[in-house]
Design a protein around this nucleic acid. Structure first.
Lengths: 246, 246
DNA sequence: GCTTGACCCTGCCGTGACGTCTACGTCTGT
DNA sequence: ACAGACGTAGACGTCACGGCAGGGTCAAGC
Protein backbone atom coordinates (compact mmCIF):
# COMPACT_ATOMS: atom_id res chain seq x y z
CA UNK A 1 0.00 0.00 0.00
CA UNK A 2 1.41 3.37 -0.92
CA UNK A 3 1.00 6.59 1.02
CA UNK A 4 -1.93 7.89 -1.00
CA UNK A 5 -3.85 4.67 -0.58
CA UNK A 6 -3.17 4.57 3.13
CA UNK A 7 -4.27 8.15 3.51
CA UNK A 8 -7.46 7.56 1.52
CA UNK A 9 -8.28 4.43 3.48
CA UNK A 10 -8.14 6.26 6.81
CA UNK A 11 -9.44 9.56 5.52
CA UNK A 12 -6.50 11.89 5.94
CA UNK A 13 -4.09 13.63 3.57
CA UNK A 14 -0.68 12.32 2.62
CA UNK A 15 0.76 15.42 4.23
CA UNK A 16 -0.75 14.36 7.52
CA UNK A 17 0.77 10.91 7.27
CA UNK A 18 4.21 12.33 6.62
CA UNK A 19 3.70 14.77 9.49
CA UNK A 20 3.04 11.87 11.85
CA UNK A 21 6.18 10.18 10.58
CA UNK A 22 8.10 13.35 11.28
CA UNK A 23 6.82 13.42 14.86
CA UNK A 24 7.52 9.74 15.29
CA UNK A 25 3.86 8.96 15.94
CA UNK A 26 3.65 6.53 13.06
CA UNK A 27 6.66 4.29 12.34
CA UNK A 28 8.32 4.70 8.98
CA UNK A 29 7.53 1.70 6.78
CA UNK A 30 9.84 -0.06 4.35
CA UNK A 31 10.86 1.74 1.22
CA UNK A 32 10.77 0.44 -2.31
CA UNK A 33 13.85 0.80 -4.52
CA UNK A 34 12.51 4.12 -5.78
CA UNK A 35 12.13 5.49 -2.29
CA UNK A 36 8.35 5.10 -2.06
CA UNK A 37 6.99 4.09 1.32
CA UNK A 38 5.09 0.79 1.35
CA UNK A 39 2.62 0.39 4.16
CA UNK A 40 1.08 -2.67 5.73
CA UNK A 41 -2.25 -3.13 7.40
CA UNK A 42 -0.53 -2.58 10.77
CA UNK A 43 0.27 0.97 9.77
CA UNK A 44 -3.31 1.59 8.76
CA UNK A 45 -4.51 0.31 12.12
CA UNK A 46 -2.14 2.58 14.03
CA UNK A 47 -3.00 5.54 11.85
CA UNK A 48 -6.69 4.96 12.45
CA UNK A 49 -6.05 4.86 16.19
CA UNK A 50 -4.23 8.14 16.02
CA UNK A 51 -7.11 9.61 14.08
CA UNK A 52 -9.71 8.49 16.57
CA UNK A 53 -7.73 10.08 19.36
CA UNK A 54 -7.11 13.37 17.57
CA UNK A 55 -10.75 13.59 16.59
CA UNK A 56 -11.60 13.51 20.25
CA UNK A 57 -9.51 16.64 20.57
CA UNK A 58 -6.24 15.21 21.87
CA UNK A 59 -3.06 16.99 20.90
CA UNK A 60 -0.45 14.99 19.07
CA UNK A 61 1.89 14.94 22.04
CA UNK A 62 -0.88 13.52 24.18
CA UNK A 63 -1.58 10.95 21.50
CA UNK A 64 2.08 10.06 21.65
CA UNK A 65 1.88 9.50 25.39
CA UNK A 66 -1.24 7.37 25.09
CA UNK A 67 0.31 5.24 22.35
CA UNK A 68 3.54 4.87 24.30
CA UNK A 69 1.84 3.53 27.43
CA UNK A 70 1.53 0.04 26.10
CA UNK A 71 -1.73 -0.77 27.89
CA UNK A 72 -3.36 2.61 27.33
CA UNK A 73 -2.67 2.93 31.04
CA UNK A 74 -3.74 6.43 31.82
CA UNK A 75 -5.96 6.98 28.83
CA UNK A 76 -8.93 7.43 31.12
CA UNK A 77 -7.03 10.08 32.99
CA UNK A 78 -6.14 11.94 29.83
CA UNK A 79 -9.69 11.81 28.59
CA UNK A 80 -11.09 13.06 31.87
CA UNK A 81 -8.65 15.91 31.82
CA UNK A 82 -9.62 16.65 28.25
CA UNK A 83 -13.28 16.68 29.15
CA UNK A 84 -12.66 19.25 31.84
CA UNK A 85 -10.70 21.33 29.40
CA UNK A 86 -13.51 21.16 26.87
CA UNK A 87 -16.01 22.10 29.57
CA UNK A 88 -13.98 25.22 30.28
CA UNK A 89 -13.82 26.10 26.59
CA UNK A 90 -17.53 25.57 26.21
CA UNK A 91 -18.27 27.84 29.13
CA UNK A 92 -15.94 30.50 27.72
CA UNK A 93 -17.66 30.37 24.36
CA UNK A 94 -21.08 30.56 25.91
CA UNK A 95 -20.08 33.60 27.89
CA UNK A 96 -18.74 35.34 24.82
CA UNK A 97 -21.86 34.51 22.88
CA UNK A 98 -23.96 35.97 25.68
CA UNK A 99 -22.04 39.21 25.53
CA UNK A 100 -22.31 39.19 21.76
CA UNK A 101 -26.04 38.69 21.83
CA UNK A 102 -26.42 41.43 24.44
CA UNK A 103 -24.58 43.76 22.09
CA UNK A 104 -26.47 42.70 18.99
CA UNK A 105 -29.86 42.82 20.70
CA UNK A 106 -29.14 46.32 21.94
CA UNK A 107 -29.37 47.27 18.28
CA UNK A 108 -27.20 50.33 18.31
CA UNK A 109 -23.47 49.95 18.45
CA UNK A 110 -21.55 52.99 19.67
CA UNK A 111 -18.65 54.19 17.58
CA UNK A 112 -16.38 54.05 20.65
CA UNK A 113 -16.52 50.33 20.31
CA UNK A 114 -18.64 47.81 22.12
CA UNK A 115 -18.62 48.35 25.85
CA UNK A 116 -19.40 45.72 28.32
CA UNK A 117 -23.20 45.54 28.21
CA UNK A 118 -23.66 46.65 31.81
CA UNK A 119 -21.55 49.72 31.36
CA UNK A 120 -23.30 50.46 28.08
CA UNK A 121 -26.62 50.63 29.91
CA UNK A 122 -25.26 52.97 32.51
CA UNK A 123 -23.60 55.25 30.01
CA UNK A 124 -26.78 55.50 28.00
CA UNK A 125 -28.38 57.15 31.03
CA UNK A 126 -25.59 59.72 31.11
CA UNK A 127 -25.47 60.51 27.45
CA UNK A 128 -25.48 64.13 26.42
CA UNK A 129 -25.59 65.29 22.83
CA UNK A 130 -22.93 67.64 21.61
CA UNK A 131 -20.87 67.68 24.76
CA UNK A 132 -17.21 66.90 24.10
CA UNK A 133 -16.72 66.51 27.82
CA UNK A 134 -19.44 63.89 28.09
CA UNK A 135 -17.90 61.97 25.22
CA UNK A 136 -14.48 62.12 26.83
CA UNK A 137 -15.87 60.98 30.14
CA UNK A 138 -17.46 57.99 28.48
CA UNK A 139 -14.19 57.13 26.84
CA UNK A 140 -12.33 57.32 30.11
CA UNK A 141 -14.88 55.24 31.95
CA UNK A 142 -14.76 52.63 29.20
CA UNK A 143 -10.98 52.69 29.43
CA UNK A 144 -10.90 52.16 33.17
CA UNK A 145 -13.54 49.46 32.87
CA UNK A 146 -11.53 47.68 30.19
CA UNK A 147 -8.34 47.62 32.18
CA UNK A 148 -9.85 46.75 35.53
CA UNK A 149 -9.76 43.43 37.28
CA UNK A 150 -13.15 41.77 37.85
CA UNK A 151 -13.12 42.95 41.48
CA UNK A 152 -12.35 46.51 40.49
CA UNK A 153 -14.95 46.42 37.75
CA UNK A 154 -17.63 45.34 40.14
CA UNK A 155 -16.81 48.17 42.51
CA UNK A 156 -16.79 50.66 39.68
CA UNK A 157 -20.06 49.49 38.23
CA UNK A 158 -21.91 49.33 41.51
CA UNK A 159 -20.68 52.80 42.39
CA UNK A 160 -21.98 54.09 39.07
CA UNK A 161 -25.25 52.23 39.40
CA UNK A 162 -25.85 53.72 42.80
CA UNK A 163 -25.09 57.24 41.61
CA UNK A 164 -27.22 57.08 38.49
CA UNK A 165 -30.29 55.96 40.38
CA UNK A 166 -30.49 59.44 41.81
CA UNK A 167 -31.96 61.89 39.26
CA UNK A 168 -30.34 64.81 41.06
CA UNK A 169 -26.97 63.20 40.57
CA UNK A 170 -27.60 62.82 36.87
CA UNK A 171 -28.61 66.44 36.63
CA UNK A 172 -25.50 67.57 38.51
CA UNK A 173 -23.34 65.48 36.23
CA UNK A 174 -24.81 67.13 33.16
CA UNK A 175 -24.20 70.48 34.72
CA UNK A 176 -20.61 69.54 35.38
CA UNK A 177 -20.16 68.56 31.75
CA UNK A 178 -21.57 71.90 30.66
CA UNK A 179 -19.30 73.82 33.03
CA UNK A 180 -16.26 71.96 31.84
CA UNK A 181 -17.17 72.39 28.18
CA UNK A 182 -17.42 76.11 28.77
CA UNK A 183 -13.88 76.10 30.12
CA UNK A 184 -12.39 74.40 27.07
CA UNK A 185 -10.32 77.40 26.01
CA UNK A 186 -10.13 79.26 29.31
CA UNK A 187 -7.03 79.95 31.34
CA UNK A 188 -6.30 78.02 34.54
CA UNK A 189 -7.07 81.04 36.76
CA UNK A 190 -10.51 81.57 35.29
CA UNK A 191 -12.96 82.39 38.12
CA UNK A 192 -15.40 79.67 36.94
CA UNK A 193 -12.87 76.97 37.77
CA UNK A 194 -13.65 76.91 41.47
CA UNK A 195 -17.37 76.39 41.00
CA UNK A 196 -16.80 73.75 38.33
CA UNK A 197 -14.55 71.78 40.68
CA UNK A 198 -17.16 71.87 43.46
CA UNK A 199 -19.89 70.71 41.12
CA UNK A 200 -17.71 67.98 39.69
CA UNK A 201 -16.66 66.75 43.10
CA UNK A 202 -20.29 66.27 43.95
CA UNK A 203 -20.89 63.90 41.03
CA UNK A 204 -18.00 61.56 41.56
CA UNK A 205 -19.37 58.66 43.56
CA UNK A 206 -17.19 57.31 46.30
CA UNK A 207 -15.49 54.16 45.11
CA UNK A 208 -14.92 55.22 41.53
CA UNK A 209 -11.51 56.69 42.16
CA UNK A 210 -10.23 53.89 44.33
CA UNK A 211 -11.70 51.33 41.99
CA UNK A 212 -9.85 52.05 38.78
CA UNK A 213 -6.19 52.16 38.01
CA UNK A 214 -6.20 55.91 37.81
CA UNK A 215 -4.24 56.69 40.94
CA UNK A 216 -1.62 54.05 40.38
CA UNK A 217 0.48 55.61 37.72
CA UNK A 218 2.03 58.98 37.49
CA UNK A 219 2.33 58.72 33.75
CA UNK A 220 -1.29 57.90 33.22
CA UNK A 221 -2.38 60.90 35.25
CA UNK A 222 -0.03 63.18 33.33
CA UNK A 223 -1.43 61.90 30.06
CA UNK A 224 -4.91 62.49 31.37
CA UNK A 225 -4.18 66.11 32.28
CA UNK A 226 -2.44 66.67 28.98
CA UNK A 227 -5.63 65.69 27.21
CA UNK A 228 -7.63 68.55 28.69
CA UNK A 229 -7.47 72.29 28.25
CA UNK A 230 -5.50 74.11 30.94
CA UNK A 231 -8.57 75.31 32.81
CA UNK A 232 -10.16 71.88 32.58
CA UNK A 233 -7.03 70.26 33.92
CA UNK A 234 -7.05 72.72 36.78
CA UNK A 235 -10.65 71.72 37.57
CA UNK A 236 -9.67 68.09 37.71
CA UNK A 237 -6.72 68.82 39.96
CA UNK A 238 -8.87 70.78 42.39
CA UNK A 239 -11.57 68.13 42.26
CA UNK A 240 -9.09 65.49 43.26
CA UNK A 241 -7.90 67.68 46.12
CA UNK A 242 -11.47 68.08 47.35
CA UNK A 243 -12.09 64.36 47.12
CA UNK A 244 -8.89 63.58 48.98
CA UNK A 245 -10.05 65.66 51.91
CA UNK A 246 -13.18 63.56 52.32
CA UNK B 1 2.86 57.91 29.54
CA UNK B 2 5.42 55.26 28.72
CA UNK B 3 4.71 51.85 27.29
CA UNK B 4 4.64 50.02 30.61
CA UNK B 5 2.16 52.46 32.08
CA UNK B 6 -0.08 52.27 29.05
CA UNK B 7 -0.02 48.51 29.13
CA UNK B 8 -0.80 48.39 32.85
CA UNK B 9 -3.66 50.89 32.46
CA UNK B 10 -5.40 48.76 29.85
CA UNK B 11 -4.38 45.43 31.26
CA UNK B 12 -2.10 44.01 28.58
CA UNK B 13 1.63 43.35 28.31
CA UNK B 14 4.11 45.69 26.69
CA UNK B 15 4.76 42.95 24.17
CA UNK B 16 1.15 43.12 23.11
CA UNK B 17 1.31 46.88 22.62
CA UNK B 18 4.39 46.58 20.45
CA UNK B 19 2.73 43.76 18.55
CA UNK B 20 -0.20 46.03 17.73
CA UNK B 21 2.24 48.69 16.57
CA UNK B 22 3.89 46.15 14.34
CA UNK B 23 0.55 45.26 12.77
CA UNK B 24 -0.39 48.91 12.39
CA UNK B 25 -3.41 48.51 14.65
CA UNK B 26 -2.21 51.12 17.10
CA UNK B 27 -0.42 54.22 15.73
CA UNK B 28 3.15 54.72 16.83
CA UNK B 29 3.35 57.65 19.27
CA UNK B 30 6.02 60.28 19.51
CA UNK B 31 9.43 59.28 20.74
CA UNK B 32 11.55 60.95 23.38
CA UNK B 33 15.17 61.77 22.66
CA UNK B 34 16.18 58.37 24.05
CA UNK B 35 13.83 56.52 21.75
CA UNK B 36 11.16 55.76 24.34
CA UNK B 37 7.57 55.92 23.13
CA UNK B 38 5.38 58.49 24.89
CA UNK B 39 1.68 57.79 24.74
CA UNK B 40 -1.31 60.04 25.13
CA UNK B 41 -4.79 59.30 26.39
CA UNK B 42 -5.90 58.83 22.78
CA UNK B 43 -3.66 55.83 22.46
CA UNK B 44 -5.04 54.33 25.64
CA UNK B 45 -8.57 54.77 24.30
CA UNK B 46 -7.76 53.08 21.03
CA UNK B 47 -5.91 50.29 22.78
CA UNK B 48 -8.89 49.69 25.06
CA UNK B 49 -11.15 49.52 22.00
CA UNK B 50 -8.90 46.93 20.43
CA UNK B 51 -8.94 44.94 23.66
CA UNK B 52 -12.72 44.96 23.90
CA UNK B 53 -12.96 43.67 20.36
CA UNK B 54 -10.36 40.95 20.76
CA UNK B 55 -11.97 39.83 24.01
CA UNK B 56 -15.13 39.20 22.06
CA UNK B 57 -13.10 36.80 19.98
CA UNK B 58 -12.33 38.92 16.93
CA UNK B 59 -9.05 38.28 15.15
CA UNK B 60 -6.65 41.18 14.83
CA UNK B 61 -7.25 41.50 11.11
CA UNK B 62 -10.97 41.79 11.75
CA UNK B 63 -10.26 44.37 14.41
CA UNK B 64 -8.23 46.23 11.82
CA UNK B 65 -11.17 46.26 9.43
CA UNK B 66 -13.60 47.43 12.07
CA UNK B 67 -11.28 50.23 13.17
CA UNK B 68 -10.67 51.26 9.57
CA UNK B 69 -14.34 51.67 8.73
CA UNK B 70 -14.64 55.06 10.31
CA UNK B 71 -18.24 54.66 11.48
CA UNK B 72 -17.94 51.05 12.57
CA UNK B 73 -20.03 50.49 9.47
CA UNK B 74 -20.19 46.74 9.23
CA UNK B 75 -19.36 45.96 12.82
CA UNK B 76 -22.79 44.41 13.23
CA UNK B 77 -22.08 42.20 10.27
CA UNK B 78 -18.74 41.08 11.65
CA UNK B 79 -20.24 40.34 15.04
CA UNK B 80 -23.10 38.36 13.53
CA UNK B 81 -20.63 36.34 11.54
CA UNK B 82 -18.56 35.80 14.65
CA UNK B 83 -21.60 34.62 16.56
CA UNK B 84 -22.34 32.03 13.91
CA UNK B 85 -18.76 30.90 14.04
CA UNK B 86 -18.89 30.56 17.80
CA UNK B 87 -22.15 28.66 17.52
CA UNK B 88 -20.45 26.17 15.25
CA UNK B 89 -17.53 25.80 17.63
CA UNK B 90 -19.86 25.32 20.55
CA UNK B 91 -21.76 22.58 18.72
CA UNK B 92 -18.50 20.87 17.80
CA UNK B 93 -17.31 20.90 21.39
CA UNK B 94 -20.62 19.58 22.66
CA UNK B 95 -20.49 16.73 20.19
CA UNK B 96 -16.98 15.82 21.24
CA UNK B 97 -17.90 15.96 24.89
CA UNK B 98 -20.82 13.65 24.20
CA UNK B 99 -18.54 11.12 22.57
CA UNK B 100 -16.09 11.50 25.42
CA UNK B 101 -18.73 10.90 28.04
CA UNK B 102 -20.01 7.88 26.16
CA UNK B 103 -16.51 6.46 26.24
CA UNK B 104 -15.87 7.30 29.86
CA UNK B 105 -19.25 6.02 31.02
CA UNK B 106 -18.64 2.74 29.22
CA UNK B 107 -15.96 2.21 31.83
CA UNK B 108 -13.66 -0.08 29.93
CA UNK B 109 -11.42 1.32 27.25
CA UNK B 110 -10.13 -1.18 24.70
CA UNK B 111 -6.44 -1.21 23.95
CA UNK B 112 -7.18 -0.84 20.26
CA UNK B 113 -8.08 2.73 21.02
CA UNK B 114 -11.46 4.26 21.57
CA UNK B 115 -13.94 3.25 18.90
CA UNK B 116 -16.98 5.18 18.05
CA UNK B 117 -19.40 4.19 20.82
CA UNK B 118 -21.92 2.54 18.50
CA UNK B 119 -19.31 0.31 16.94
CA UNK B 120 -17.91 -0.50 20.36
CA UNK B 121 -21.27 -1.87 21.40
CA UNK B 122 -21.55 -4.02 18.33
CA UNK B 123 -18.04 -5.36 18.62
CA UNK B 124 -18.60 -6.32 22.26
CA UNK B 125 -21.27 -8.72 21.03
CA UNK B 126 -18.79 -10.34 18.69
CA UNK B 127 -15.88 -10.59 21.06
CA UNK B 128 -14.10 -13.89 21.32
CA UNK B 129 -11.26 -14.55 23.73
CA UNK B 130 -7.99 -15.83 22.41
CA UNK B 131 -8.89 -15.64 18.74
CA UNK B 132 -6.31 -13.73 16.72
CA UNK B 133 -8.74 -13.71 13.83
CA UNK B 134 -11.46 -12.07 15.90
CA UNK B 135 -9.00 -9.44 17.08
CA UNK B 136 -7.90 -8.77 13.51
CA UNK B 137 -11.48 -8.49 12.37
CA UNK B 138 -12.21 -5.93 15.03
CA UNK B 139 -9.19 -3.92 13.97
CA UNK B 140 -10.25 -3.96 10.36
CA UNK B 141 -13.80 -2.99 11.14
CA UNK B 142 -12.56 -0.13 13.31
CA UNK B 143 -10.28 0.89 10.48
CA UNK B 144 -13.02 0.97 7.89
CA UNK B 145 -15.30 2.77 10.30
CA UNK B 146 -12.65 5.39 11.00
CA UNK B 147 -12.02 6.16 7.36
CA UNK B 148 -15.61 6.08 6.20
CA UNK B 149 -17.76 9.03 5.30
CA UNK B 150 -20.84 9.52 7.51
CA UNK B 151 -23.02 7.94 4.81
CA UNK B 152 -20.78 4.92 4.50
CA UNK B 153 -20.54 4.58 8.26
CA UNK B 154 -24.28 4.50 8.62
CA UNK B 155 -24.58 1.77 6.03
CA UNK B 156 -21.84 -0.25 7.66
CA UNK B 157 -23.27 0.09 11.13
CA UNK B 158 -26.81 -0.74 10.16
CA UNK B 159 -25.63 -3.80 8.26
CA UNK B 160 -23.73 -4.97 11.32
CA UNK B 161 -26.63 -4.21 13.63
CA UNK B 162 -28.96 -6.26 11.50
CA UNK B 163 -26.60 -9.19 11.35
CA UNK B 164 -25.82 -9.29 15.04
CA UNK B 165 -29.46 -9.38 16.03
CA UNK B 166 -29.58 -12.93 14.72
CA UNK B 167 -27.99 -15.35 17.23
CA UNK B 168 -27.37 -17.87 14.45
CA UNK B 169 -25.33 -15.31 12.63
CA UNK B 170 -23.21 -14.62 15.69
CA UNK B 171 -22.62 -18.35 16.12
CA UNK B 172 -21.62 -18.71 12.49
CA UNK B 173 -19.23 -15.80 12.80
CA UNK B 174 -17.52 -17.41 15.76
CA UNK B 175 -17.23 -20.59 13.82
CA UNK B 176 -15.68 -18.73 10.93
CA UNK B 177 -13.11 -17.19 13.27
CA UNK B 178 -12.25 -20.64 14.59
CA UNK B 179 -11.90 -22.09 11.10
CA UNK B 180 -9.66 -19.24 10.03
CA UNK B 181 -7.53 -19.45 13.15
CA UNK B 182 -7.00 -23.14 12.43
CA UNK B 183 -5.67 -22.24 8.99
CA UNK B 184 -3.08 -19.80 10.27
CA UNK B 185 -0.10 -21.87 9.15
CA UNK B 186 -1.76 -24.01 6.49
CA UNK B 187 -1.01 -23.98 2.80
CA UNK B 188 -3.39 -22.36 0.30
CA UNK B 189 -4.53 -25.74 -1.08
CA UNK B 190 -5.55 -27.10 2.30
CA UNK B 191 -8.87 -28.93 1.97
CA UNK B 192 -10.40 -26.97 4.84
CA UNK B 193 -10.18 -23.75 2.84
CA UNK B 194 -13.32 -24.42 0.84
CA UNK B 195 -15.53 -24.96 3.87
CA UNK B 196 -14.07 -21.95 5.65
CA UNK B 197 -14.87 -19.74 2.68
CA UNK B 198 -18.48 -20.96 2.58
CA UNK B 199 -18.91 -20.36 6.30
CA UNK B 200 -17.31 -16.92 6.10
CA UNK B 201 -19.42 -15.91 3.13
CA UNK B 202 -22.51 -16.63 5.19
CA UNK B 203 -21.53 -14.21 7.92
CA UNK B 204 -20.73 -11.18 5.83
CA UNK B 205 -23.87 -9.11 5.77
CA UNK B 206 -24.83 -7.52 2.49
CA UNK B 207 -23.83 -3.88 2.50
CA UNK B 208 -20.63 -4.26 4.46
CA UNK B 209 -18.44 -4.71 1.43
CA UNK B 210 -20.00 -1.98 -0.65
CA UNK B 211 -20.05 0.33 2.35
CA UNK B 212 -16.39 0.60 3.20
CA UNK B 213 -13.45 1.73 1.21
CA UNK B 214 -12.18 -1.79 0.85
CA UNK B 215 -12.96 -2.37 -2.83
CA UNK B 216 -11.67 1.00 -3.95
CA UNK B 217 -7.98 0.48 -3.74
CA UNK B 218 -5.84 -2.24 -5.09
CA UNK B 219 -3.08 -1.44 -2.70
CA UNK B 220 -5.26 -1.65 0.35
CA UNK B 221 -6.50 -5.08 -0.68
CA UNK B 222 -2.97 -6.30 -1.30
CA UNK B 223 -1.91 -5.09 2.13
CA UNK B 224 -4.90 -6.86 3.59
CA UNK B 225 -3.99 -10.16 1.96
CA UNK B 226 -0.39 -9.75 2.96
CA UNK B 227 -1.46 -9.54 6.57
CA UNK B 228 -2.94 -13.05 6.56
CA UNK B 229 -1.41 -16.46 6.27
CA UNK B 230 -1.49 -17.95 2.75
CA UNK B 231 -4.43 -20.25 3.46
CA UNK B 232 -6.30 -17.47 5.19
CA UNK B 233 -5.73 -15.16 2.26
CA UNK B 234 -7.02 -17.86 -0.01
CA UNK B 235 -10.18 -18.10 2.10
CA UNK B 236 -10.74 -14.38 1.80
CA UNK B 237 -10.23 -14.49 -1.97
CA UNK B 238 -12.73 -17.29 -2.38
CA UNK B 239 -15.18 -15.58 -0.05
CA UNK B 240 -15.07 -12.46 -2.15
CA UNK B 241 -15.69 -14.56 -5.27
CA UNK B 242 -18.74 -16.18 -3.66
CA UNK B 243 -20.07 -12.80 -2.58
CA UNK B 244 -19.58 -11.37 -6.04
CA UNK B 245 -21.76 -14.05 -7.51
CA UNK B 246 -24.68 -13.07 -5.31
C1' DG C 1 10.60 7.23 -28.08
C1' DC C 2 8.12 11.02 -26.18
C1' DT C 3 4.71 13.25 -23.70
C1' DT C 4 1.08 13.62 -20.36
C1' DG C 5 -0.75 13.09 -15.95
C1' DA C 6 -0.92 11.00 -11.59
C1' DC C 7 1.65 9.71 -8.29
C1' DC C 8 5.87 9.96 -5.03
C1' DC C 9 10.11 12.32 -2.61
C1' DT C 10 12.40 16.15 0.61
C1' DG C 11 12.28 20.41 2.67
C1' DC C 12 10.94 25.03 3.78
C1' DC C 13 7.61 28.93 4.70
C1' DG C 14 3.09 30.40 6.58
C1' DT C 15 -0.77 30.35 9.81
C1' DG C 16 -2.51 33.61 15.03
C1' DA C 17 -1.45 36.16 18.82
C1' DC C 18 1.46 36.79 21.15
C1' DG C 19 5.45 34.55 25.00
C1' DT C 20 10.11 34.18 25.50
C1' DC C 21 14.76 35.09 24.82
C1' DT C 22 18.89 37.66 23.16
C1' DA C 23 21.63 41.56 23.33
C1' DC C 24 21.71 45.98 24.22
C1' DG C 25 20.80 51.15 25.94
C1' DT C 26 18.66 54.18 29.74
C1' DC C 27 16.91 55.92 33.94
C1' DT C 28 16.66 56.05 39.12
C1' DG C 29 18.01 55.45 43.86
C1' DT C 30 21.71 54.51 47.22
C1' DA D 1 29.52 53.37 40.72
C1' DC D 2 26.53 49.96 40.55
C1' DA D 3 22.09 47.38 40.89
C1' DG D 4 17.64 46.82 39.24
C1' DA D 5 13.87 48.20 36.77
C1' DC D 6 12.72 50.12 32.77
C1' DG D 7 13.12 50.73 27.52
C1' DT D 8 14.77 49.45 22.39
C1' DA D 9 14.82 46.02 18.20
C1' DG D 10 14.64 41.52 16.39
C1' DA D 11 14.31 36.47 16.06
C1' DC D 12 12.49 32.09 17.34
C1' DG D 13 8.72 28.95 19.36
C1' DT D 14 3.94 27.57 19.77
C1' DC D 15 0.15 23.65 16.99
C1' DA D 16 -1.27 20.71 13.27
C1' DC D 17 -0.78 20.70 9.44
C1' DG D 18 -1.49 23.37 4.14
C1' DG D 19 0.91 24.81 0.29
C1' DC D 20 4.58 25.28 -2.60
C1' DA D 21 9.16 24.56 -4.87
C1' DG D 22 11.90 21.51 -7.31
C1' DG D 23 12.57 17.48 -8.18
C1' DG D 24 11.96 11.79 -9.39
C1' DT D 25 8.92 7.58 -10.95
C1' DC D 26 5.63 5.08 -13.40
C1' DA D 27 1.74 3.64 -16.55
C1' DA D 28 -0.72 4.71 -20.64
C1' DG D 29 -1.34 6.73 -25.02
C1' DC D 30 0.71 9.05 -29.35
Amino acid sequence: MRIGELAAAVGVTTRTVRHYHHLGLLPEPERLANGYRTYTLRHAVVLARIRRLTELGLGLTEVRDVLADDAGKDLTEVLTELDEDLARQEAAIRERRQRLRALLDAGELPAEGPFSPELAGLLATLSVEDSPMAAKDREILALVDTGASPRERERLLSALRGALEDPDMVARTREAYALLDALADASPDDPRVKQAARTLADCVPAGVLTGGRLPDHDGFLRALYADFGPAQAEVIRRTLLILEER
